[in-house]
C-alpha cells in the first residue's frame, strides 16, 4: 500500500448490505447558520451552553443517519483538518467555545483516515488551553458509514 489513505480511491458501489427503510421523510436537524468553522462565531447564541458537534466535512456524507443520530439536539461546526488553512484559529475558537460560550460537551466526529485525527488533536488542544473543563468525546466513522468507535477522551 502506498500513498495517502485519506485520498486513496476505493469503490464500494457493489455493496449489497442495504438494510434500513427507504420510506418516511427525515427532517433536517440543523438549527443554525453558518456552520463552517472559519465562519462561525463562538459568541453566536446557538452555541451558548450547548452540546457541540465538531464534525469533519466528510462525516455527514458517510453516515446514513447523521441528522437523526448525531446532529439532533446539538449545535455544529464543520472543518477539514487536511485542507483548511489557518487552523490555529480553530484551536482558539474551541477555547472560546469552552470558556466564553460555556458549552456543555464537545463531540469530535472524524473519518477513520489518519489525517482526520488532526481534527481530534485541534479539539484536544483547544480544550487544554481553556480554563473551564468539559467532557470531550471522539467518534470515528468508517468509510462505509459505520461507527468504529465512540469514546470519551
Amino acid at each position: 500500500m502506498s500513498g495517502c489513505p485519506g485520498s486513496k480511491t476505493i469503490d464500494f458501489s457493489e455493496k449489497t448490505n442495504q438494510e434500513g427503510s427507504e420510506t418516511g421523510k427525515r427532517p433536517s436537524q440543523l438549527r443554525q447558520w453558518p456552520i463552517q468553522m472559519h465562519l462561525v462565531s463562538p459568541m453566536a447564541p446557538y452555541f451558548q451552553g450547548k452540546d457541540i458537534l465538531l464534525a469533519a466535512d466528510c462525516t455527514a456524507f458517510a453516515l446514513g443517519d447523521f441528522h437523526k443520530d448525531y446532529l439532533k439536539g446539538k449545535s455544529i461546526a464543520i472543518a477539514c483538518p487536511k485542507l483548511d488553512s489557518d487552523q490555529e484559529v480553530y484551536v482558539e475558537k474551541i477555547k472560546a467555545l469552552i470558556d466564553d460560550a460555556k458549552i456543555n460537551t464537545l463531540s469530535v466526529m472524524i473519518m477513520q483516515v489518519p489525517c482526520c485525527f488532526g481534527l481530534a488533536q485541534i479539539a484536544k488542544d483547544g480544550a487544554e488551553k481553556a480554563t473551564r473543563k468539559i467532557p470531550v468525546k471522539q467518534i470515528v466513522v468508517g468509510l462505509e458509514g459505520n461507527i468504529l468507535s465512540e469514546e470519551w477522551l
Binding site: D51, T105, K133, I134, P135, K137
Partner: peptide, 13 residues
C-alpha cells in the same frame, strides 16, 4: 446521554 454527561460533570465540579 451526552448532554447528561456534561451536566453531571459540571455538577460534580
Amino acid at each position: 446521554s451526552t448532554t447528561q454527561v456534561g451536566e453531571v460533570f459540571q455538577k460534580c465540579n
